[in-house]
Amino acid sequence: MSTPDQFHALMRDVTRLTAGQPLDAALQAQLNAQAGPDSALFQDIFAACRQGVADGWMCGREGGGIRYGRVIKPAPDLDGCSVDVVDMDDLAGPHHAHPNGEIDMVMPLTNDARFDGHGAGWLVYGPGSSHSPTVSRGRALVLYLLPGGAIEFTRPG
């Protein structure tokens, strides 16, 4: 059983690992080493996301074949990050930029599913980066931590 409050507590455990760190390849490696797919924290978050989707308090909106939703608005106890979760199945989402960067947790629901070419684990995009988020080879949940909740929907350049 997972509730929004329990999920928020799990996100505090993640942001303790990311607080004050530059959003770069070193942070990505650190997250995958300390909270990777085989860790209890990753498994607890994955279970909470599956339960939240099933219970309807997560990914409650749908557009363009993507189920999505902002689960937590930018919060001081999450180092100012917001938390969004999407449920995607073999498709590309809308192009967007990350003014402050983005920390993604990739949770494949289909064994071979990839998010932007990456399987289960953490993916970090630095400030000013952009992409068309793409799930291929199956279905995945993807959790996005956005510093300051900042995201700008753009056209690919």
Results as ranks from 00 to 15, higher is better:
residue 130 S to C: 06
residue 26 A to W: 01
residue 141 L to K: 03
residue 51 Q to N: 14
residue 73 K to P: 10
residue 61 R to M: 13
residue 101 G to I: 02
residue 107 M to Y: 09
residue 89 D to H: 14
residue 73 K to M: 13
residue 96 H to I: 05
residue 76 P to L: 05
residue 64 G to Y: 08
residue 131 H to N: 13
residue 122 W to C: 05
residue 85 V to E: 04
residue 133 P to G: 06
residue 57 W to Y: 14
residue 125 Y to W: 11
residue 41 L to W: 11
residue 86 V to K: 11
residue 108 P to D: 01
residue 138 G to Q: 00
residue 62 E to D: 12
residue 110 T to D: 15
residue 64 G to S: 09
residue 47 A to M: 10
residue 118 H to Q: 15
residue 29 A to T: 12
residue 78 L to S: 10
residue 82 S to Y: 01
residue 54 A to S: 15
residue 71 V to K: 04
residue 42 F to L: 09
residue 69 G to W: 07
residue 67 R to Y: 14
residue 78 L to C: 09
residue 81 C to H: 15
residue 129 S to V: 00
residue 58 M to P: 11
residue 99 P to C: 00
residue 121 G to D: 01
residue 39 S to A: 08
residue 103 I to T: 10
residue 115 F to S: 03
residue 27 L to R: 04
residue 115 F to D: 02
residue 102 E to N: 13
residue 56 G to S: 06
residue 55 D to Q: 15
residue 48 A to D: 09
residue 74 P to R: 05
residue 64 G to K: 10
residue 80 G to E: 08
residue 22 P to I: 05
residue 25 A to Q: 13
residue 24 D to L: 04
residue 29 A to W: 03
residue 34 Q to W: 01
residue 52 G to C: 08
residue 102 E to F: 00
residue 143 L to R: 00
residue 40 A to Y: 02
residue 59 C to Q: 14
residue 58 M to T: 12
residue 56 G to C: 09
residue 136 S to Q: 08
residue 84 D to Q: 14
residue 97 A to C: 13
residue 64 G to W: 05
residue 135 V to P: 07
residue 76 P to M: 02
residue 48 A to P: 13
residue 99 P to L: 03
residue 55 D to R: 14
residue 47 A to Y: 05
residue 30 Q to V: 01
residue 97 A to M: 10
residue 132 S to Q: 11
residue 138 G to D: 02
residue 83 V to Y: 04
residue 138 G to C: 04
residue 123 L to Q: 14
residue 88 M to L: 11
residue 86 V to C: 12
residue 31 L to G: 05
residue 101 G to C: 07
residue 28 Q to V: 00
residue 58 M to H: 07
residue 60 G to I: 00
residue 120 A to M: 08
residue 57 W to R: 09
residue 113 A to S: 07
